[in-house]
Design a protein around this nucleic acid. Sequence first.
DNA 1: TATTGTTATACTCTATAACTATA
DNA 2: TATAGTTATAGAGTATAACAATA
Lengths: 171, 171
Amino acid sequence: MSSERQAVEEPGGPAPAPRGAAFLLTQLGTHAADRFATRVAELGLTPPDIGLLRTIATRPGRSQRALAADLGVVPSRVVALIDRLDGKGLVERRRSTEDRRNHELHLSAEGGRVLGEVWRIAAAHEDDILSALDDDQRARLTELLGLVVAQQGLTPGVHPGYRNLPGGQRS
Amino acid sequence: MSSERQAVEEPGGPAPAPRGAAFLLTQLGTHAADRFATRVAELGLTPPDIGLLRTIATRPGRSQRALAADLGVVPSRVVALIDRLDGKGLVERRRSTEDRRNHELHLSAEGGRVLGEVWRIAAAHEDDILSALDDDQRARLTELLGLVVAQQGLTPGVHPGYRNLPGGQRS
DNA sequence: TATTGTTATACTCTATAACTATA
DNA sequence: TATAGTTATAGAGTATAACAATA
């Protein structure tokens, strides 16, 4: 806030680092998301896919509209996402007998198996990202992040990757 | 890692939260990035704009190629970014007299003023994101994040928003 | 008439490849 | 021939609007 510029006149390399925790959070969060995306790509899945699989596994039988509402996403997007997962044989659309407009969403057996793989990958990912910290430090970090998450009013388990901005703009 | 499914059969709301620090980092990092983007949007700027302004301010007179290399971005993208900032009168392209192929990039006076605004906004942003924590907690969080950033080999001051993935895919 | 899922369309961000001017 | 900047083009992701089937 005080010293302006700090003009580091070195020939190479990028600008001097902002040292605030907010910037570190952005930098690290993006990095962690990228690493996770790379890992699940080995399963042929994207991070949005994971969110869908996880949500469907938790409460099977819900409609696409309900799913869209949960994730804060437009229904037409759920169509495309489910199309992919359906094509891969991971989820099933079952026409509701009560209200034939609805599709009840379920994980297939293969979908359940793949989701198990995802959990394994997530654990390895966690260990990779936090490998600089010992157990005590990890616990403290988790606690501090939990406080921030709660105060910022973020929905537990749904990260803001599902938002309603056009063009997929991210920072 | 151990308990599968955990089937919480509640009628509403999204899936149960993964509680790992890596997920919290992703969730929080995305959130922080979004908030920051919203704030700088009031200046008519995007987060990539900020990175460019910051880098140019730090080492004025460099070429677009050098800037692209610093940010890990393709040169054609720098063209579009600079076009916008040039059109707003925030940066200037000056044909180099030594090698007339080069454009030396400089901040205009207005650009410097706007960058000052950005710093003010960044400070407010920092305070907003961390408002759940007292000074001691903030210091500890910053320290822990710094350890993780260093171990993960991230370039200080350049967040991975500048990468080389097609389609702008993010998690 | 209202709602579910769907299709058609458009827009943003970003990369790759081809091109121009300069060296 | 090689390099700096540029333009043209393409693709992914996502939203909005129009539409068909069902209620």
